[in-house]
Design a protein around this nucleic acid. Structure first.
Length: 450
DNA sequence: CCAGGACGCGCG
DNA sequence: AAAGCGCGCGTCCTGG
């Protein structure tokens, strides 16, 4: 760890103490539920395996690998594909046949039993990585993950034994099963408080791009929607939730992290069929693109290249200037300092240099807030407890009667006090609060009405 | 037999 | 010229 200033040292010193409290508090686990689920999931895995063995692919697998057959082995599967002459588009970094979910999904049409294999993988991940691990690390019904501040290059935190920061949520079915196991103490609620779009906002504090700042300050503006419009050549009234999602996750964020138009174009294009994208007026996107003169993939790629050029050279000119200057300074000095006072040095790629300071400082906003909230809870002798942290969110186990006071404290610290504390924060910060019912589990969290 | 590489996959 | 950032953890597999 290389703090360059006293306040940076202080942040991590106090952060360590506060996180030690969080670790000691622990999060309550519904152990009987989890044990029951473990059995159920194991049975489902077995059922799928029985089904797969009898499938054409399963039989071929057995005839090739005999007693060594192992349906968990990606190595065997890629060998099998080679032998059977099954073509797979994607390859791994080391040049081997890729058998990840995306590659396999492309084969489902011609080999339907692949679906069973994918199902098995999902359930095994759930049981092996989550259910089993949480049960094993549970002590007296409480799980006490370790929150580390000394292990990440960007000065973010990490979490282990178990890793509380990667509990499934994107896959609804899997997410519900596992999050149902995280519960509040008797008669209480779980509360999760997120910083909304913290990395984009903290990036503004570095590049100070006026266009980006106005996107954040002006609530009628919407960058993800605007970029979705440009990428798919649409008007405002043609945008749907799915189309905006693609603008956000297949153009804007990848671009911020340093991706380039070839990948973006590919992902935006593939999403059209995968998600069956249609305009709000129900016109299929490819049809729409075609009538706007973009008839082939190659034309689409050229179009996205132009969108990218406009994005960085026209729209966010000042952002681009910062990236250039910041990287140049790194090349000159061999290091750079974050706004929060930490030094990053050593060999880094251009993308690393641009991303590290933002990722680190964004987390430091969360850490600083967590420390303040923890101190207030102690000073006021409150019963609510902080039980976890996930990069841009704090999770509390709250006494119901303290709910309103807790929300006030969170809002005050995370959106007001922090701006007073760090004068380099030049954009407003905002939070979102989600709460479970009394005795409700983590999968029942709902946004608190304001 | 163990350590570590490779891969896959979960989250922000 | 390069070509998306950060983690932890499970399994399989190879090489010492």
């Amino acid at each position: 760890m290389r703090p360059t200033r006293k306040d940076a040292y202080k942040l991590f010193h106090e952060g360590t103490l506060a996180l030690a409290d969080v670790e000691r508090n622990g999060i309550k686990i519904d152990v009987p539920y989890l044990k029951n689920q473990s059995e159920k999931i194991k049975k489902r895995i077995q059922k799928n395996q029985d089904l797969f063995i009898q499938s054409e692919l399963g039989i071929a697998w057995k005839s090739v690998f005999k007693e060594k057959t192992n349906f968990d082995s990606g190595f065997q599967l890629s060998k099998l594909f080679q032998i059977l002459g099954i073509k797979v588009k994607n390859i791994t970094e080391k040049g081997n046949i890729s058998v990840d979910e995306k590659s396999l999904n492309e084969l489902v049409k011609s080999i339907p039993e692949i679906d069973i294999l994918l199902r098995m993988r999902k359930l095994k991940k759930l049981e092996g990585t989550y259910i089993k691990n949480i049960l094993e690390s549970c002590f007296d019904g409480y799980c006490h993950p370790s929150f580390n501040l000394h292990k990440v290059r960007t000065y973010r935190s990490s979490c282990s034994e178990p890793n509380f920061q990667n509990i499934p949520i994107r896959d609804k079915e899997i997410g519900n099963i596992i999050r149902r196991a995280f519960i509040p103490r008797q008669g209480r609620k779980l509360l999760e408080c997120d910083y909304t779009g913290i990395e984009v906002r903290i990036a503004c504090c570095y590049h100070k791009d006026p266009v980006m700042v106005s996107y954040i300050k002006d609530k009628t503006k919407d960058l993800h929607r605007d970029m979705a419009m440009q990428c798919y050549s649409l008007d405002k009234d043609q945008i749907t939730k799915d189309i905006r999602y693609c603008g956000k996750n297949k153009f804007v964020f990848p671009q911020f992290y340093g991706d380039y138009y070839v990948n973006c174009a590919k992902n935006l294009w593939e999403a059209i069929d995968e998600m069956d994208l249609k305009t709000a007026q129900n016109i299929p996107i490819k049809e729409h693109l075609s009538s706007s003169g973009i008839k082939t993939y190659s034309a689409f790629e050229k179009h996205i290249q132009k969108v990218e050029k406009d994005f960085w050279e026209v729209k966010f000119k000042k952002y681009t200037e910062w990236k250039k200057l910041h990287y140049k300074r790194y090349l000159q000095y061999g290091y750079f300092d974050t706004l929060t006072g930490f030094r990053c040095s050593g060999l880094m790629s251009r993308n690393d240099v641009i991303n590290y300071p933002v990722q680190g400082s964004a987390f430091h906003c969360l850490l600083w807030s967590l420390i303040q909230v923890q101190n207030i809870l102690k000073e006021k002798n409150m019963k609510s407890l902080i039980v976890g942290q996930i990069h841009d969110s704090i999770i509390l186990d709250i006494e119901s009667s303290e709910e309103e006071e807790i929300c006030e404290i969170l809002k005050n610290i995370m959106t007001k006090k922090i701006i007073e504390h760090w004068d380099w924060i030049i954009v407003p910060l905002d939070i979102e609060i989600e709460i479970t019912p009394i005795n409700g589990s983590w999968n029942e969290k709902k946004e608190k009405s304001k």
